[in-house]
Design a protein around this nucleic acid. Structure first.
Lengths: 130, 130
DNA sequence: CCGCATCCGTTTGGATACTG
DNA sequence: CAGTATCCAAACGGATGCGG
């Protein structure tokens, strides 16, 4: 299991809990929108609408939902300016920035193997890519 | 957008296509089950049922579905032994192994920040973690 | 043992509208 | 502009059965 490595010696009960928590965090984070948002934010501070236009394709609802999740996990910070019209800014925290590093790795990976993958898809018999 | 960096200078049409393809691959790969399977396979060759018991929680259907996807993208190789009962083995390819590296980074990240995240969740007001 | 198909409940995600 | 709620379609995901 993925989280196996997280616990050096899986021998006591604390680790079982940590493992389950790790699984939960992993599930939160290992999804398309969350990773795209983290990437979009980068080292900048963006307003809600700015993130929205950066991510492109994401709906209002999904953005809100995922930003909430990131905030809850302490990956992004939410700064509300009590003005009118409202202005809400989001910034990645240290953990968020660290996670972003791994997203970069995944992007690099995509870049490196995109040709290989395309070829593989062709060979497999592409009849389902609209 | 995440895939922005994939195209050094986003100026011609080829890159737009590559970008869309990158997005598609990213969506395929950036999901819980796919990453867990890749991690489970590791450098070993496992039979269908072995993967199933490694990943734990995954259903027959989801496993099949994701293994097909990994095969289609050339991330995993499928070896059928025409015996009875059938024996089908799966192995990560080079690209698959490379992707696995990034999964490891994500696991390391989880390990490093799990406490921070747990604390953050508590502060946020944990009323929804069953 | 493995793969494919089917049924079906659950969840996700988009569109819209309303509030502050 | 941002957040919340509602409605509804689509996709996900589990269980089961048959076929190779």
């Amino acid at each position: 299991m993925v989280t196996k490595q997280l616990s050096g010696t899986p021998e006591n009960a604390d680790l079982a809990r940590a493992d389950s928590l790790a699984r939960e965090i992993f599930s939160d984070v290992a999804n398309k929108w969350a990773l795209l948002i983290i990437e979009a934010l980068g080292e900048r501070t963006l307003r809600f609408g700015e993130v929205r236009s950066e991510v492109d394709g994401i709906s209002h609802k999904m953005l809100t939902q995922n930003l909430r999740m990131l905030e809850r996990n302490g990956l992004a910070q939410r700064k509300v300016h009590p003005t009118v019209p409202p202005k809400v800014e989001y910034t990645l925290t240290e953990p968020g920035l660290a996670l972003r590093e791994t997203v970069h790795r995944m992007c690099d990976w995509t870049h490196r193997y995109i040709d290989h993958i395309e070829t593989s898809r062709d060979r497999f018999g592409a009849a389902d890519t609209p």
